[in-house]
Write a protein that binds this DNA or RNA. Structure first.
Lengths: 342, 342
DNA sequence: TTGTATGCGTTATCAG
DNA sequence: CTGATAACGCATACAA
């Protein structure tokens, strides 16, 4: 077969090229190559011919053009504070996998806990025509959120519910904080040192509130949710260390910094923490973790966004329970036994 | 000011709408709003008027349409095996941040170490019109790679160099494995148990080769690079445990599984591992880590992709050195002192 | 079963 | 300085 007309070599072929080549029209080619039900309304001969030529020419549909026309990009964006945090890493991985299974790809953004970056990103992804959005918000009100976003864009709030937005999935922060307190309490804890992440983040703030309410806080430190903050906080905590039975941290990064510093101490206090501490059973520091159900969170928000993408308007918030896990050192030191108390 | 013509409410306004509203043409509006040097070639009055109206109407450019026209999306894709792996998580986070600083956004994909998913993703992101691509490849040849990709697409290979592709950034696997071996050797290690990740992944394979070459391998286990594999491997290793001085794992997930199992053992062997083990100084298991320079890797591949995006064709591969870090338990047990030996 | 024509929202070319 | 008008590549209503 010969190449007719002005077929530009080295260019990625378009519908026009393969229409010319196959002596048909763009619409015909489009219909067979779009692959939908439309393809069956074309005679088998031309269908095969078109497919064969398209294949030979290495045709790839231009998804930008298609999306511009159909107003569908099959892309959803996920906006988190930091993908380097294993909590969001696992979440992102699971969400991506699940979404891919449903034909959507994921665009990932880091807000870095920065309100301005957040709204910039929201505006950008909206302008890029994404079909839906899953966001771990810094903004705390619906209005603030919708200011950077078309009101009609399918939106799921993850991890940090916002009043007035029904499509959200999160762990029950009150439950999670309280069961952590319960276990600490049974472990004889009355006074604590409290290490908090940024208070403008609702989860950190709520956790702090509950902890302050249930225990006597002898020292308190606040800072970015990073290991370094944990180490800095520990220096401040040293003076009250003899009088507290536990150091409680509002996230795992903070706790890791504390735990690392605790290596020096001969009789370390209990460390209470939200989310996972890797290999904690091997540590001689007694640890109690309030663990969120990451797979359920991922599954939940994918389910919600798919529902919204499907035009379904009736979604209800998902609030997941968490559980508490303790490590060996905790069990041994406080109860002289080897099994979890729960 | 009043709304003229058939301005469709609830619709996101386009250039046409704001042209009608402002009694100018689309071209004028486009020139003003595109913000480039073109804007200055428009009279200040109309410029201001257009801006004011655009603002009032809440105009947002449709980036799909713009990209279709300009053939530029300001998006680069990053394809890794699993973003839940902290190594790739940190890498992804740094890359995203750096890219954002240069006006590009990131599209993240997980290949899950699956060759088919990899090529599917490559084709998809190419079709979506991304400007460039950073990939941690599973494919091992240039041909295999270019089969799913336009040859002209700016491409940077990360972590696992491919022969014939000059734009790549990675740690020097031979160097990294060898310095790990050096330290183990000085620690008195002669026989080892070897725990390998998938052999079709070049980094895992190469590390295995070098280790097998420098030590006597009494037991060997291969499996997916997950914690669970580490635990399974440990069961197989128990019988040779008395006769090996170290268990070496080709990545950190594998090692964590092993280390967790090692909690039981009264006199644990050394664990050699590639990449970070969190809080390892607190563990009583002696550990020696070969650590890659993650920020340098991120910086390197962003630099390369930006160069390529800039039309610069002359990039040369970047090969970064790694360093070895040991934990306290290692120092104490083997040298009776408290400082690193390197 | 297939082709023609139109439009998605922009930018770019070419006149004026 | 500004305005028509033609692409960009594709999907689709309407004809034939």
């Amino acid at each position: 077969m010969q190449l007719h007309g002005t077929f530009k070599l080295e260019m990625t072929p378009t519908l026009v090229d393969i229409a010319r080549e196959t002596h048909t029209s763009v619409s015909t080619v489009s219909r067979v190559l779009s692959g939908g039900a439309m393809a069956n309304r074309i005679s088998k001969e031309t269908r095969d011919r078109v497919r064969e030529v398209a294949d030979r020419m290495g045709y790839r549909p231009n998804l930008l053009a298609r999306s511009l026309r159909t107003r569908k990009t099959y892309t959803v964006a996920l906006l988190v504070s930091d993908i380097a945090n294993p909590f969001f890493g696992q979440l992102g991985s699971l969400i991506e996998r699940s979404l891919a299974q449903h034909g959507y790809s994921l665009m990932l953004c880091n807000s870095a806990e920065d309100l301005e970056k957040e709204s910039d990103y929201l505006r950008m992804v909206a302008a890029k025509g994404i079909d839906g959005l899953i966001v771990v918000p810094l903004a705390s009100s619906k209005e603030q959120m919708l200011q950077s976003l078309p009101a009609t864009l399918p939106l799921v709030i993850l991890d940090r519910p916002i009043a007035g937005i029904p499509s959200s999935v999160a762990s029950d922060q009150d439950q999670i904080a309280n069961i952590l307190c319960d276990v600490l309490d049974r472990g004889g804890v009355r006074q604590i040192a409290l290490l908090c992440g940024p208070q403008h983040v609702i989860t950190h703030r709520r956790r702090c509130e509950i902890l302050s309410q249930r225990f006597e806080v002898l020292s308190r430190y606040e800072g970015a949710a990073q290991k370094a903050t944990g180490r800095a906080a520990f220096r401040q905590f040293t003076e009250v260390l003899p009088r507290v039975q536990a150091i409680v941290c509002t996230n795992n990064f903070l706790a890791q910094g504390v735990v690392e510093s605790l290596g020096q101490i001969e009789r370390p206090p209990i460390v209470g923490v939200f989310d996972e501490i890797p290999m904690m059973d091997l540590l001689r520091v007694p640890i109690v973790c309030a663990m969120q159900d990451i797979p359920a969170l991922a599954e939940g928000c994918v389910a919600q966004i798919l529902k919204l993408l499907d035009g379904n308007q009736t979604v209800t918030p998902i609030l997941l329970p968490a559980k508490v896990v303790t490590n060996k050192a905790f069990e041994v030191e406080l109860f002289g036994r080897d099994e979890p108390i729960l």
